[in-house]
């Protein structure tokens, strides 16, 4: 049966797990944003581009969980599970954000490129001052969606013993033989974070879609 007192008692522990969950999400997302942009740019280079694309296509077509296990067992012992989790999450999602950046870059009007050439701007300024500011602005909502998707993928880190929310819930379940309260609260906490963030993303969409 549902035990409210017990449920309230385990909330502090679960919130500690939520902190780790959020940490992993934010750090992993930072990796995905930077690496994704790098991949999107490298893809335009001849020879190296298609090679990098193939690698990331493979990463995108295979399960995150298997990639986590793979790296976890191969990584040197001095790396913490959280570090490994953040790195794998970041690289996996970079495969997705790279596509988002690419569509943004392709969406920049041709006239902008031509204007750059007419002014004979150096490549650094073409990208830094003209193309990327326009491209990134347009894809902000799409990038935001991946932040939420990534947040919902962090429970997988529990498989490589990162002490996030799911791991805490599982530990409580096996120690007290009461998993109902723990798992239900994890679900509710997920909703508590992802529904408001979805509303924020929708706002962003309205704000930036008009550009």
């Amino acid at each position: 049966m549902w035990d409210t007192e017990f449920a309230i008692g385990i909330i502090p522990q679960l919130l500690e797990g939520l902190v780790v969950t959020v940490q992993a999400t934010v750090l992993g997302y930072a990796v995905a944003l930077v690496l994704g942009l790098a991949v999107a740019l490298i893809r335009r280079v001849r020879v190296v581009g298609p090679l990098v694309f193939a690698v990331f296509e493979f990463i995108r077509s295979t399960p995150l969980l298997v990639q986590l296990f793979f790296v976890f067992y191969l990584a040197p012992a001095n790396l913490t599970p959280l570090t490994i989790g953040v790195a794998v999450l970041g690289v996996h999602y970079a495969a997705y954000t790279a596509e988002v950046y690419r569509s943004g870059i392709e969406g920049v009007a041709k006239g902008q490129w031509e204007a750059c050439r007419a002014l004979s701007l150096p490549p650094l300024r073409v990208w830094g001052a003209v193309v990327l500011p326009q491209a990134i602005r347009k894809v902000i909502p799409a990038l935001g969606n991946y932040l939420i998707a990534m947040f919902k993928d962090t429970p997988l880190l529990f498989a490589i013993t990162v002490h996030e929310m799911m791991f805490v819930a599982d530990t409580i379940g096996s120690e007290t033989f009461r998993s109902m309260e723990a798992y239900t609260l994890v679900g509710l906490l997920f909703l508590l974070v992802s529904v408001p963030s979805a509303i924020v993303i929708r706002r962003l969409e309205r704000r930036y879609a008009a550009v």
């Binding site: 549902w2 009461r178 798992y183 679900g187 997920f190 529904v195 979805a198």
Partner: peptide
């Protein structure tokens, strides 16, 4: 849609597999 998009499939699966038998 809001509930099942908001909660990870892993959490739902654990809930169904381990929490349901308890209550």
């Amino acid at each position: 849609t809001e509930v099942f998009r908001g909660v990870a499939a892993l959490v739902v699966m654990f809930w169904l597999a381990f929490a349901i038998p308890q209550i």
